[in-house]
Amino acid sequence: MDNLALKELLYKIADDQLILGHRNSEWTGMGPLLEEDIAFSSMAQDKIGQSHALYSILHELGEQDPDTIAFTRNAEQFHNCILTELPNGEYDFSLMRHFFYDTAEIIRFDMLTVSSYKPLAELAVKVRAELRYHTLHANTWIKQLGNATEESIARLQRSLDHALPYALGIFEESPYEKQLIADGIFEGEVALMENWKNRVEEIIEQTQLHLPGWSTLNPVYGGRSGKHSEHLQPLLDEMSEVFKIDPGAEW
């Protein structure tokens, strides 16, 4: 088994979780209602915890320790998709991103439960169970607000149109795609995307929202190879600010 392919896979999933976890945490104290404040904060805690577990696997594969990995890299060393780093915007955008991303994420971890790489397969069983609460939350709100008032529907539709090309960037293929599939580590981004499209259609059909034709969309790629938007570096600077004051501090 070639570790490069495996590491690339672990990095991109972990970085997605860390960066979106951080964005979710920005809702703490700012939610439109207390319940949503708590929900986004809890999902932040889950995602950052899950990223830590993935970084720990990377550490066992010879990479730096989780804190060093999380807090000392620059934007171009991160493999997260651009969708996860975009600013929270209004609640409708955060909700739509949460729906698109978590729908993909739960399918990804479901696929990883049968990975030939055991530590990842074991972790995936656990993460998949936790993510049910995230997709439950996303689906509930998309269905409620996607059928509520003229304003809520219009806002969500605008966010859907804006977020969708970025969402397709989740599935940007890695240079190791064939190898991961051949080694039974991961079934690949194409298979993931097909499942994701079906699941997204299934939920959106239950609302008054509309999906544009998939073939009319231009996916926003780059994140997986370190080419990010201007929004990632400021996020990293803020996230690592305390760590960098005293990197050796005992907490």
Partner: peptide, 13 residues
């Protein structure tokens, strides 16, 4: 059910 997310990760409200 008021919220599937509660004061800790393992509790709902």
């Amino acid at each position: 059910l008021k919220n599937p997310f509660g004061p800790t990760l393992c509790r709902s409200i």
